[in-house]
Computed example of a mutant assay.
Amino acid sequence: MSEDLEFVNIFGDKVDTTKRIKPAKRESTGPEKYHKGWRVIGVSPEAIAAAKDERERAIQAAKKRNADYERGTNTRLGRAAVPPPFDESEWIKSAPLKPARSKPFEVPEAAQLCFDMAKKAGWHRVEMRVLAKGEA
């Protein structure tokens, strides 16, 4: 009962299922140069507070796990390394930069105003970037 299956398309023509068809590479239809506006990015005070809270939770969890291990109630996991205390300045140096606004600014003056307001609001490592390709 080892019959070979034959596949056909909607017109009844046999289809070879053993060969793979590579799709043609899509050509870019966009321009070589474009300009999409300006974006203000940086490290927000909320991100710093969230990272600080996360570090405190990690420290408390490690201390609890070590205390359980010392009491002998949780010996299968072993001891945990307690993370060092949160160092805000070191974290800011390596923190990912997030946009101050989800939509890019269309006017450079508006981006500059947002840049100034972010600085006054306590943002760190604030930058204003041009979203462009080529010499647009």
Rank of each mutant, 00 (worst) to 15 (best):
M1A: 04
E3N: 08
D4C: 04
D4T: 08
E6D: 04
V8G: 00
N9I: 03
I21K: 14
K22G: 00
K22A: 02
P23A: 11
P23D: 08
K25W: 00
K25D: 03
K25T: 03
K25N: 01
T29G: 09
G30S: 06
E32C: 08
K33E: 14
K33A: 12
Y34V: 07
H35C: 09
K36W: 06
K36D: 04
R39F: 07
R39G: 04
R39I: 14
G42Y: 03
P45N: 08
A47W: 03
I48Q: 05
K52N: 13
D53I: 11
E56V: 09
A58H: 09
A58K: 13
I59Y: 05
I59D: 01
Q60Y: 10
A62S: 13
K64F: 13
K64P: 09
R65F: 03
D68G: 14
D68V: 13
Y69R: 05
R71C: 11
T73K: 14
N74E: 15
N74P: 07
T75Q: 15
G78N: 09
R79C: 14
A80H: 13
V82L: 01
P84G: 10
P85D: 12
F86I: 09
F86P: 12
D87K: 08
A95M: 03
P96Y: 00
K98E: 09
P99Y: 01
R101W: 02
R101S: 09
K103N: 12
P104H: 09
V107P: 00
E109N: 07
A110I: 02
A111F: 07
Q112V: 07
Q112K: 12
Q112E: 12
F115Y: 01
F115S: 00
K120S: 09
A121W: 03
G122W: 05
W123Q: 11
V126K: 07
E127T: 09
R129K: 10
R129C: 05
V130S: 13
K133D: 13
K133P: 08
E135A: 15
